[in-house]
Design a protein around this nucleic acid. Structure first.
Lengths: 179, 179
DNA sequence: GATATATATGCAACTAAATGCATATACTCT
DNA sequence: AGAGTATATGCATTTAGTTGCATATATATC
């Protein structure tokens, strides 16, 4: 389980509430880690009880209080230990490909509609990533340094989405030829 | 949940036992669907009780009996219904990228070792896919037709692995520059 | 002779994640 | 006035998946 380590990573760089983490997952890690708010809050609670995190309550008026979490020494050590071990190659389970594999059971139009729908989403994600890349590339060389590793994860998102879109074009070309 | 639909897809083309499915998942769908034998056997049992599958017992000597499953009319309809609906864009959770993101906490050598380890596996997968592609491309045009959709899923595997390896080279180049 | 892999199926316990529900205020857009 | 989004947290239930264990024979490799 790595939600735990993803949370430790985010909080190690900068403390924050569950809600902050939710936003960071969406905005910055969306292409390689996704978690719902339910999962995040539950995990924060669990990790606090295990001693990896502590929080300060920040009272607010008009809106709910925030629990601002930070990583303890124990938590940081747990993260480093995990970093030094090795992770498994990610298991892939892609329902869209199951559909394509069994495509002979339905009209080609159904498949191309579905592919197109996904293509829009992937194209949008790629655009977001390219915009983020642009920001990084505009930095002075010495400002880049602290962001290089996150930038490399972004590159994964970019190359992955580009490959996805290239593939989708191949598929659409074939499906169109059937009509 | 699509393990169910992946199983229906495989059995719709050709009946088989749980063990057969396990092999087909490993050999033919490995790049887009993965399931353990425990998961498969449990799912077969469940789907049988729901009326999507039936099986004949094939007694053997020397080795355990086989339950050979086939899809019922109800099962086929369920698959078609699923095909006609739409699936969500796959959620990505990639522990290796979490590690890279937090790479500043450990020596660069640890990261490059890990990346290299994964690279070997991805390269091996790519080689397997390319070998499968070669087989398909050697077929006569009229023999290709029934395999085109599975071939397109294979293309996803190929393009995905190539993108992965391209990315890994970028990462290694950066990590090497640090030494 | 020992070890590993292939054949073939399954249960039990646990962990991870998805889904649904619940609360309460503020701001923006139509 | 109503809908939607943002802020902020959480519990309960269900589904999906992992890990460990169990059994039993045949064949291939070291």
């Amino acid at each position: 389980m790595s939600l735990k380590h993803a949370i430790l990573t985010l909080l190690e760089t900068e403390e924050g509430s569950g809600y902050d983490l939710l936003k960071r997952f969406k905005q910055r890690l969306g292409f390689f880690w996704n978690a719902s708010h339910q999962q995040i809050y539950l995990q924060l609670k669990k990790m606090t009880s295990e001693g990896f995190l502590k929080f300060e309550l920040e009272t607010q008026h008009g809106r709910p209080d925030r629990k601002v979490y930070h990583v303890t020494a124990l938590g940081k050590q747990a993260l480093i230990n995990w970093m030094e071990g090795s992770v498994k190659v990610d298991k892939v389970n892609d329902a869209l490909l199951v559909k394509l594999y069994a495509g002979h059971l339905v009209e080609p139009g159904i498949l191309s509609k579905e592919i197109t729908k996904h293509k829009v989403i992937h194209q949008r994600m790629l655009n977001t990533f390219l915009a983020l890349e642009k920001q990084y590339l505009l930095l002075q060389d010495d400002e880049k340094t602290p962001f290089t590793l996150p930038y490399l994860t972004l590159r994964k998102g970019i190359l992955g989405e580009q490959a996805w879109l290239t593939w989708a074009d191949e598929v659409n070309e074939y499906l169109t030829s059937l009509k």
